[in-house]
């Protein structure tokens, strides 16, 4: 299992002052795996996600992506690591309000040395996959919650990531829309082989994952 891991964290600890949020967590996600982190609010799920995605550095422990350790990387190296390997989906979509749907999708490509036409083309392709061809020029304020999350998924996919981190991706959606989003994530996982690590507190959604990891008080319990 370790040999096929796309992402691994070994003995990860994270403290904020005297508060120890993660207490030596070791964890791996395999290539093409759909893993789900569940646990009560404040148990350290989001912190673990932040460490594994390179948004934060652990106080102790190591994180490796595709065999390459990123723990000691600089902030800019981590940004490049995220740009090239990682996609994010957040609970509150986190779209830029002044950019249209396609521009939000192309956001990770903006700093890259590719033409605007290519950026647009790739963004359109992703929006097509999300069945949002008709909403490409709309601002986020003109989109429904489900459409916003689909735009966010398209943005997470635009750089062809090896893994997608999804933090409560259905948390702000009604159950029908939430199910639709989950079905898209499963389709991406099945058809494109993108590994997905999802954080949720909804047990029904978690059951659909390949693997369920339970966290409690900063530790993996099952």
């Amino acid at each position: 299992m370790i040999n096929s891991a796309i992402l691994s964290g070994v003995d990860l600890r994270k403290s904020y002052g005297s508060l120890e949020v993660l207490k030596g967590v070791s964890f791996a996600v395999d290539k093409g795996e759909f893993a789900c982190l569940v646990g009560k609010s404040g148990c350290g799920k989001t912190t673990l996600l932040s460490l594994l995605s390179g948004l934060e550095k652990p106080t102790e422990g190591k994180v490796s992506l595709d065999g390459k350790e990123i723990t000691d990387s600089s902030e800019d190296e981590l940004a490049l690591y995220r740009r090239e390997n990682v996609g994010f989906i957040f609970q509150s979509f986190n779209l830029i309000p002044t950019l249209s749907a396609w521009e939000n999708v192309a956001l990770p490509l903006f700093p890259m040395k590719i033409s605007q036409e290519q950026q647009r083309q790739r963004a359109m392709e992703m929006l097509g996959k999300m069945e949002l061809d008709h909403r490409t020029e709309h601002l986020p304020s003109a989109l429904s919650g489900g459409e916003k999350q689909r735009v966010a998924i398209a943005r997470a996919l635009v750089n062809r990531p090896k893994i997608i981190f999804a933090d409560e991706p259905t948390g702000n959606l009604d159950s029908t829309t939430g199910e639709a989003i989950m079905s898209i994530l499963h389709r991406l996982n099945d058809e494109d082989g993108v590994a997905i690590l999802m954080v949720t507190h909804e047990a029904e959604l978690a059951k659909t994952a390949d693997r369920l990891i339970r966290m409690k008080d900063g530790e993996i319990v099952a």
Partner: peptide, 16 residues
């Protein structure tokens, strides 16, 4: 600040 956080999360460097 949140917008900057999004940019950095999706791979923008400090320089960008």
């Amino acid at each position: 600040a949140k917008e900057i956080g999004i940019l950095k999360a999706v791979g923008w460097t400090n320089r960008n």
